[in-house]
Amino acid sequence: MEYLQQLVFALVLGSSYALIAIGLTMVYGILKILHVAHAGIYTLGAYVGLLVVTHITRNFWAALLCGMVASGIAGVIIYRGVYYYILRRPRIVPLIVSIGIFAAMNEFYRLVFGPYQHAFPAKLRFPLVITPYFVITPRQLLIIALTAVFLLLLYLVYNRTKVGLAWQACSQDLSMAGAVGVPVDSAVALNFLLGSALAGAAGVLMAFYRNEVFPTMGNVVAYKAFVVVVLGGFGSIRGSVIAGLLLALVETFLGSLEWFEFPRDAIAFLVLVLVLMFRPRGLFGRL
């Protein structure tokens, strides 16, 4: 029964990994850019949520909505303001630019909001699940449920709408898609909007779950999401979700063992090395 409880922890952790990795893999799928600044967008969502919660209303849903909107817009600004102009350069150029944006965002948060951790005093009524085998707290249930809803919506957008069709076309061949009349520019902008909004949602959710917001909260997320994307296969959303859950499962079970001395966060790096050595295209990648 202890294992069931650990399974709940893994599910929550995996949901947070999946939410942040999806945006990263969506961007990579179309533009082939390793969008490191995505973790800065995640932090932005948390800070915007914090502003709402501390200045306007304690309502969690308001914070979530504002965080998602602000993150989505910031994502589009980064695309239209920066990436758009360097898409045709070698891939290393946007990568370095992206790292620069991420570092600048972190320093911006520190200058504006201070170096301190801030508590996240949002209010939310959500059910508590108690069974003889495990307990799911309201915040945990919220993360699992919201992730499921977002994934379902994303699935529908990808497979049932014209926008999704345009994304699929763009990810297969950007210039060909443009040639046959797909509005590439707005499709990519929408892709950034949605992917970044999901990262913002992850930021607000984790801020609420862990009750803290701080400038460097995206650092661990940045490389964890990268590992999840590599493991799942670049550009594969399904892969990112499954990889996120897998990584969380391994981390949770190994992390709970008393004799396991290896730091939990290092497991991700080990996974990264192994995947790159033996299956560089990841679990579901097309590469």
Partner: peptide
């Protein structure tokens, strides 16, 4: 009865604490 290390910056202690509870 229980001894375990965790890295600086760790925020996820639930798995470890579930073992402590036992």
């Amino acid at each position: 009865v229980f001894e375990k290390k965790f890295p600086l910056g760790e925020r996820e202690f639930r798995a470890m604490l579930a073992q402590v509870r036992l």
